[in-house]
Design a protein around this nucleic acid. Structure first.
Lengths: 204, 204
DNA sequence: CGCTCGGCATGACAAATGTCAGACGCGGCT
DNA sequence: AGCCGCGTCTGACATTTGTCATGCCGAGCG
């Protein structure tokens, strides 16, 4: 094991990023070559340092971890991506895997374990946290059609139907119809509960 | 400075807690005597080890940082509390200060800075992050009356008015009235937008 | 081709929600 | 005491939202 893994660390919480950098540096075969606090910064750093593995927080200002991963996939195909997250929602995992992410774990893992996982994804293997995977499977695919999801998203901040209709270029009746069917599919009493459920499952 | 500060660390994210414990241990005058992943666990650990300073995450399973701080205040008056948080909302700061918390900072600070702050609060001084303080001041006090806030909270998960009325033991008309006046005070179009705004400002 | 099925879209009607004027009690103020 | 102002509470009315029956179009299939 003479090979050294060059790591990029991106997380908006300085406390965690710094602490993590220090801990990972204790491992002989890992070296943190760059740190970033935002999505765009992470991309810039990746271009500049071409790391072997990028450890990305899911929620960062600017662009979230999955978006960064997508861009990275295109620009630096050799760079493996490992996502860490505080509040894992099923849909995110699905999107992340679709973006070519190699690992997906909650922040409840230990640093020791994270170091192992960095080696794992660097070796070309995949790893997703079993519990998150189980959630994603039990949540299943979104039953919503494209328009239903679109309208539900526009309804997310509590806007009245008239405004949604205008933004989506639809008749009010149509908007109500989509909201209603979305709510039925999700088993919600009304559209607001539907928005909440869809968010929890990562479908919006 | 021969005195050693005994620290309790509570955060549900193992990654951060562990990393933090390691970093703080590098400081000669700080020693982490206990760690916890949940609110109740933090309380139990505090009782067992009687730390000088408790570093608490705001959002933990079981009981949040402020609730733990309140209990701690009663049981271990000598233990100073420092709250760290990822997403600082104005209302939380206010609640925290009311609970006798001595420090309140976002997780974007560096570990170095955190170590300084632990010494600061241990010395009996207070510290709140300037930016969070500014937010709290600009957000001001909640304009909602007790009933308005209560009803708005019951409406938070999208429940229909009839259900809220039953839970609050009020007539439906009354509930609608409170929701309406709350929405007006918050400058919201409807109650759902009102819930969102009140959450953002930490008023629910 | 002719058929069915599912997604998209609409308007009319029923139900839920928002708005209004007003009643009651309580505390502060002159 | 008498008079506000404020919070609490209510029902009646207007508006918004949810539900339903229906039509249109393209994809898949016998």
């Amino acid at each position: 094991m003479t090979e050294v893994v060059r790591v990029l660390l991106a997380d908006d919480e300085h406390l965690i990023r710094g602490a993590l950098a220090a801990l990972l540096s204790l491992e002989d075969d890992l070296v943190v070559v760059a740190e970033a606090a935002t999505g765009p910064e992470a991309l810039a750093m990746a271009r500049a340092h071409a790391p072997d593995v990028a450890v990305l927080d899911l929620q960062m200002p600017g662009a979230d971890g999955v978006k960064v991963a997508t861009s990275l996939r295109a620009e630096l195909p050799g760079c493996r991506v490992l996502i860490v997250t505080s509040h894992g929602r099923p849909g995110h995992l699905k999107r992340a895997l679709a973006a070519g992410v190699r690992g997906f774990v909650p922040k409840t893992v230990s640093a020791q374990r994270l170091a192992e996982l960095i080696r794992t994804v660097h070796a070309g293997n995949r790893y997703v946290d079993p519990e998150l995977a189980a959630d994603a499977i039990s949540a299943g695919d979104s039953p919503l059609t494209a328009r239903e999801a679109e309208v539900l998203e526009l309804a997310a901040d509590g806007a009245p139907v008239a405004e949604i209709a205008e933004r989506a270029a639809l008749a009010e009746g149509t908007v109500r119809n989509y909201l209603s069917s979305a709510a039925t599919k999700l088993g919600a009493e009304n559209r607001h509960a539907a928005v909440r459920l869809a968010r929890e499952r990562g479908w919006v």
